[in-house]
Each structure stands twice: as C-alpha cells, then as structure tokens.
C-alpha cells in the first residue's frame, strides 16, 4: 500500500520540457505504425517522378526570371512546400480531431501538469519535426533526380518547416471548431484549389494581372515562393514578406488554438 500513499510534491517540469515530452509522445505513436512512417517518404518521391519526369518531359524547359530551367527544377520546390502544407494540415487535423472528439486523450493529458498551451505547441512541434524529416528525404530525392539548381536549396528545409508550423497552427485552430468529419471537406475546399492554383505547377504569369495579385496573397503561395527562390538561388526582399506572412498566420492560429483548447477542455 505504501506505494500508493501521497508523496511530497515533485517539481513540475518546465514548459519547454513539457512540450518536448508531448512531441516525443506524438512521435512514438507515429513511429509505432512503421509502415505509415516509411510510406510517407514515398509520396514526394512519386510526385517528383510523375510530375517532374513525366509531365516535365512534355513541358521541356520553362522561363523564370530570364533563365530557362527544366520543369522538374521548377516544380520540385513547389511540391516540397505543398507537401509541408498537406503534412501539417492533414496530420494535425486528423490527429487533433481524433484526440479531441473521439478518443478524448487530451482530457487525460490535461490531468497531468500539461496545459492547453503545451498541447498546442506539442502538436505543432511534432508537425515541424515530421515535416523536417520528410523534407530532408525530399531534398535527397531531388538531388538524386538531378533537380538541384543552387546550393541554397538547403534553405528549403527551414522554409518547409516554417510552412508546416504556420499551417498546423491554423489547422489545429480550425479543428477546434469542427463538430463532425464532414467539416473536413471545408478544409479540402480551401486546400485543394491552393494546391492546384498557387503556382506550384505553373508560373503566375499564365494568369491575368488581377488574378496574379490574388494568388500571390494566398498562404501556400508564400511557401512556394520561398522554397522556389531558395531552390533557384534567387534572393529577394520579397522573401521577408513571405516569412512575415507565415509567421503572423501561425501566431494567430496558435493564439486561437490555445484559447479554444482552454474553452473546450477546461470548461
């Protein structure tokens, strides 16, 4: 019985430690499904091969800022940003919805010293780690297929991680408002057109002027532009705008998430 008696208070771990613990818990859960983890590497590879090589062969070269580059070089960074967005959105939405509404495992976590802020940061942190791992793989595949144009492509990695942080923060915030699985389709309705029309597959110059402006203000475009500029080795002042955009969007998402989680879990 003695093991059940109350012991003196143990110090509560610091916030950063708590978040790391949650990220690790997420990670362990994910790695348990080894097949899921491994097949995740396959996805960008298949896209690069199909769109880059298959469609790229039909397109030939493409003119960007005065130079002609192979289509695969053009499309690869766009796919990288997209896969960061999809990874962040789908993973955080499904996971968070499942834990929030179905398994109620957040309730269990909150019975420990964890706070809603920790939960939010734990999910976002895991998303960054995961996208980071996959982005490294993506870069390796790019290099293997000869789609590397500039050494600066390495900066695509932090860019993709920023995209994932920003989108997962917004994604989780949206998830806290979802009541049924059907609401996911609203997310799809935003994600799908962004994927198809935010300059991943073709330059904005195919659009009329006003539409170019609209598209250049979508969240995914910021990620695509950032990754592509790094991949092609072009540095612009505009990139600061892209970064600021993603940071602000992520911060807003995080704020809403924390508030909503507190409302939902600690009524």
């Amino acid at each position: 019985m003695s093991s059940l008696t109350l012991r003196p208070h143990r110090p509560i771990p610091r916030s950063t430690v708590r978040v790391v613990l949650l990220v690790r818990a997420n990670m362990q859960r994910y790695f348990k499904h080894r097949l899921l983890f491994v097949t995740g590497f396959l996805e960008p590879f298949l896209f690069l091969l199909s769109i880059g090589v298959g469609v790229g062969g039909l397109v030939g070269g493409i003119h960007v800022e005065g130079e002609t580059i192979p289509y695969a070089v053009f499309v690869a960074p766009g796919l990288m940003a997209t896969s960061a967005m999809n990874g962040a959105m789908i993973d955080s939405i499904f996971n968070v919805y499942f834990k929030l509404r179905i398994s109620h495992s957040y309730d269990a976590v909150l019975a420990t010293p964890m706070s809603p802020t920790d939960l939010a940061l734990g999910e976002i942190g895991w998303s960054i780690v995961r996208v980071g791992i996959y982005s490294v793989a993506f870069l390796i595949v790019m290099a293997g297929l000869g789609d590397v144009h500039s050494w600066m492509v390495i900066f695509c990695l932090p860019a993709a991680m920023l995209v994932s942080a920003s989108f997962s923060a917004v994604g989780i915030a949206a998830t806290t408002y979802m009541r049924t699985w059907q609401d996911f389709d609203l997310v799809m309705m935003i994600q799908m057109p962004m994927f198809l029309f935010s300059g991943v597959f073709f330059p904005l110059t195919v659009y009329p002027g006003w539409l170019q402006l609209v598209v250049s203000l979508t969240p995914l475009y910021q990620g695509v532009a950032l990754c592509r500029d790094f991949a092609l080795g072009h540095l612009h002042l505009w990139m600061l705008f892209n970064v600021a955009y993603l940071l602000i969007m992520g911060a807003i998402g995080l704020r809403i998430t924390i508030r909503r989680l507190a409302i939902l879990l600690l009524p």
Binding site: V55, V59, G60, M192, L196, F197, F202, V206
Partner: peptide, 19 residues
C-alpha cells in the same frame, strides 16, 4: 474540374508551348 483547369489550361499552356 479544378484539376481539369489547372492541368489542362495551366500546365497545358506550358506543354503546348514546349512540345
């Protein structure tokens, strides 16, 4: 239909120009 527009018209303009 979104795919049709994005692929057919968007990428299409690149393909038709290219090959």
């Amino acid at each position: 239909f979104m795919y049709l527009v994005a692929m057919g018209v968007g990428i299409g303009s690149l393909v038709n120009k290219g090959s």
